[in-house]
Computed example of a mutant assay.
Amino acid sequence: MTQAPTPTADTVRRLVLSLLKDAKDAKDGKDAGDDPGGRGGRKARQGESGPDVRPATDDAEPVTWWVGSRHVLRLAPDREATLRQRRELRLRDLVRQHVPTAVPVSVAHGEWAPGLGYTLDTKVPGGSGEEHDVSAVGEADLAGLLTGLREVPVRQAETLGLPRAAPRSLEALRRSAVRAAERLVRADEFDAARLNQLTPPAASQLAAQPGSAVLTHHALTGGHLVVSADGRVRGVLGWAGAVVGDPAEDIAGLALAVGSPAAVRAATLAGYGARPCLRGLWLARCDTVVRLAEDLTGKNAMLLRTRLRRAWEPILLERVTDLGDADDAL
């Protein structure tokens, strides 16, 4: 198998310049063959500096690039990612009809190398959810997002190629978290007694209910939420991992991104009952314990500590709910 080329600033700049030229030719009613300069004219354009391009991440081989101040270029690094990207473009068109928050729009897409796709997306104005707090009105935005995802016809989503994801076993995750908590206790990072709230019978009570699968974003991290300075959620990014599955996974993602109280309030506003809310809460809590224990000294440890703190924020619902009588709504 031929190794994929490494994307560089020159690679990105040449691609963007070719897109700008194609757009200008289309606007002028010309094709490339009508260029008075012929191939020489095209080469002259390639010599232009073009818009500013810079990596959006610190990765050694970045695949996401800022293009000027209004666009983002995403390069698929392999053929599997290319297939996901093509599916994502179709999914975003479907989701946009149902959710109140902005979803990126692709202004151009194609291949940046043989068999490897790209999309040039409009940048959604705002900052990262990791850097801005979500306001009460922003929680209503999140409720609208969860409501909209539930309203997307599952069969229509599956025709786009979205896979179904089986619900995770909360009891298996609880056991993993108990083992991971021992490592965190030795590092003075966590009080393992906090996990005693989730007993094996309680985990069983919070199993996913049959027939509850909906379209789920499945990666609602703070980095995928675009939040404005006033705390409104203006957009949602990162749809490549979306699946038809357990709605509690998105509630769990929001708990890591905005804190458990805000996540549960948003889910409740969206019409979810106590059971899926508490299931999402405990998925998030157990996940954060496991992930921090796996990467205590890694470069992401600070972010993982922040997510653990958010997930373990207390909520009123868990104090007043008897799991045996928990509401099965949605």
Rank of each mutant, 00 (worst) to 15 (best):
D250F: 00
A257W: 03
G271P: 09
R309I: 11
L330M: 09
A255P: 03
V107Y: 11
D322N: 11
T147A: 13
A240Y: 04
E61T: 15
T268K: 10
T6C: 05
A180P: 05
H71L: 10
P200A: 11
T101Y: 01
G38N: 09
A229Q: 14
A172G: 04
E111Y: 08
D327G: 05
A263W: 03
T321S: 09
R39M: 15
E182W: 10
S106K: 14
D121K: 01
C286D: 06
G68T: 04
R183Y: 11
A263I: 04
E88C: 00
A181L: 07
G129L: 12
E189R: 07
K21C: 09
H224K: 10
P153Q: 11
L304D: 12
G223T: 10
A56R: 11
E111K: 09
Q209W: 08
T82Y: 10
A193I: 08
R194L: 12
L83S: 15
G129H: 12
T288C: 04
R168P: 12
R14W: 01
L323G: 09
D328K: 08
A192K: 06
A248C: 07
L283M: 14
R183D: 11
R155Y: 01
V152S: 04
R234M: 13
R90P: 01
G144W: 07
V258H: 00
V227P: 00
G259P: 10
A166L: 08
T11H: 14
D328L: 14
A187F: 06
A113S: 10
R164C: 06
E88D: 03
D58C: 07
G161Q: 08
V99M: 05
D295S: 13
A207G: 13
K299P: 12
M302G: 06
M1F: 02
G127V: 06
T159C: 01
S49L: 12
E139R: 08
D287P: 00
L308V: 02
E189P: 02
G235S: 05
W65K: 06
V320T: 15
R305K: 06
A252P: 06
V134G: 04
R13Y: 01
A180W: 00
T2L: 07
A311M: 06
A60E: 15
R96V: 15
L198G: 12
E171H: 14
K123L: 08
V63R: 11
R86G: 00
D59I: 11
R79H: 07
A274D: 12
A143D: 12
A26P: 02
L304M: 14
V226E: 06
Q3H: 15
A242Q: 04
G271V: 13
G68P: 03
L83K: 15
A26M: 10
S135W: 09
T147R: 14
S49F: 05
P163A: 12
M302C: 09
A262E: 04
G222H: 06
A180V: 01
H98G: 02
L145C: 02
L17A: 05
G148C: 10
G40D: 15
A240C: 04
V243Y: 01
P153V: 13
V244H: 03
P55D: 03
R42P: 00
R84E: 13
E249G: 04
G238Q: 02
V67Q: 11
E131K: 13
L296H: 03
G115M: 10
P125R: 07
K43E: 13
K30D: 13
